[in-house]
Design a protein around this nucleic acid. Structure first.
Lengths: 250, 250
DNA sequence: ATGCATTTGTTCGTATGTATC
DNA sequence: AGATACATACGAACAAATGCA
């Protein structure tokens, strides 16, 4: 018994070894955003692989949002600054192939947004509070202005709240999930005949949340936030899924 | 003024068009998990592109977790069932390049886990409740048994709770973020000299949460869950970041 | 502003190891 | 065991695009 415990040898493709090394260099900070990778021909020398292999590796790194290469650029592929694009892509794919329902996405938003506003109520700066107030004010102006302006001001409000939460992960996920939800119901949003009533109700809700944040009452702000999102989106989710959303209300 | 609003022409690479079409086929359900793509040679005919272009497209699809190709497989690339691997990968990358702190990750776990338990308290089935109880029981047995057994039983408990929440997105994100956190502190976890005391405290907390779930008291269960996670992880996060964690406690 | 050299995007051909029948 | 079809990997070539002198 005992003896050396051999591990199964997984054949690792050549392009993967290239990806691993470059990825490690980027994530460890040895390569910073804005810097350039060597040219493809230079890489094939350094890694002792063919150009095809180098290119397959670059495609993977590009798909992960780490680099970008342009034809003719004599400087080689560019190391990109962080972007949630890759996360966005994989979560969008997830939503489709895992067949996430609109209710699940909205519920997730309720969780994230209410948590963000709970934290923001306790951690926000005065400057951030002013930004939130300005966003709500912009929402009021937008009721009669343009059709897009209202949605944009709404996004700004939630962005400021997410930022004020102090948690970058919450901020990023909030942004990603919101854009997925908005894309899913973008067509329905347009032809709502009671659009103006919905907007005025939404503004009222935002004012209440803002007041709670100003007062530093996190739990109240969170509760109001969940209620506001429920009221705004409940009409778009199937009736039999609304109960799951209501389970988050107090 | 006015006139047609021209859009900038972005040159789209050949391999991208291939990716788009295959991706669309998979996400729309035209291609189901287990099914096979045509062979590379067949694909180059159908898309009228070269072998290299086909291969670059396949690498991207593989990086997104949609297909897998093996050498010698006479059937061509396999369409994979959904897996959160791609989401896991991009969130791990995010954690490194966006320099997420342990505190932010733990805070995110507190948000997700407490929301899951809140929902589970209201939506769980009796069978799921029994699974949770069994997991806590396994944690008790594991205190003296193995060192890994405790952690595994703990994972099982939270998995059941996440599943009982009825929200697949919460379930997946909970799983992804937990594995990232555990990886970050895996080395520290081993050499805690007061390990047994921590385990007994954790079991006590889990029993309380379980009781609240059984009683259907969601808010209480959520509150206990946040407190439990704070007590368990606070020692690992930097002192100046603990206040952000406490902002989530009531 | 105009070439020029270099790089990427893409194609084609070939050789090799491997899985399946 | 052999034949077949496949993916992996290499190398050479051409077109298009870019940056620089």
């Amino acid at each position: 018994m005992g003896g050396p415990r051999f591990e199964p040898v997984r054949t690792v493709r050549a392009y993967e070894r290239v990806v691993e090394q470059v990825e490690e260099a980027i994530e460890s900070g040895a390569l910073s955003p804005g810097e350039r990778l060597p040219s493809e021909r230079e890489l094939m020398v350094q890694f002792s692989v063919s150009r095809s292999t180098v290119r397959e590796a670059l495609r993977v790194l590009q798909a992960r949002g780490l680099v970008r290469s342009r034809p003719g650029d004599p400087n080689g592929a560019e190391v990109l600054p962080f972007s949630p694009a890759a996360l966005h892509k994989s979560m969008t794919t997830l939503a489709r192939v895992a067949e996430l329902s609109l209710a699940e996405l909205v519920q997730f938003r309720m969780v994230l947004d209410s948590s963000a506003v709970l934290l923001a109520a306790r951690l926000r700066t005065d400057a951030e509070l002013a930004e939130m107030a300005a966003a709500v004010s912009a929402m009021r102006d937008a009721v009669e202005a343009g059709r897009d302006a209202f949605g944009e001001a709404d996004v700004v409000f939630h962005d400021v709240v997410a930022r004020a939460s102090g948690n970058k992960l919450i901020q990023i996920c909030t942004d990603v999930v919101r854009s997925i939800v908005l894309k899913l119901i973008s067509e329905k949003l347009a032809d709502a005949d009671d659009r103006e009533a919905l907007m005025r109700q939404s503004i009222r809700h935002h004012e209440e949340v803002l007041a709670a944040v100003r007062a530093g009452d996190g739990p109240l702000a969170a509760q109001l936030s969940r209620k506001a999102m429920y009221d705004y989106y409940a009409g778009y989710v199937q009736a039999d899924e609304r109960s799951a959303l209501r389970a988050l209300l107090d």
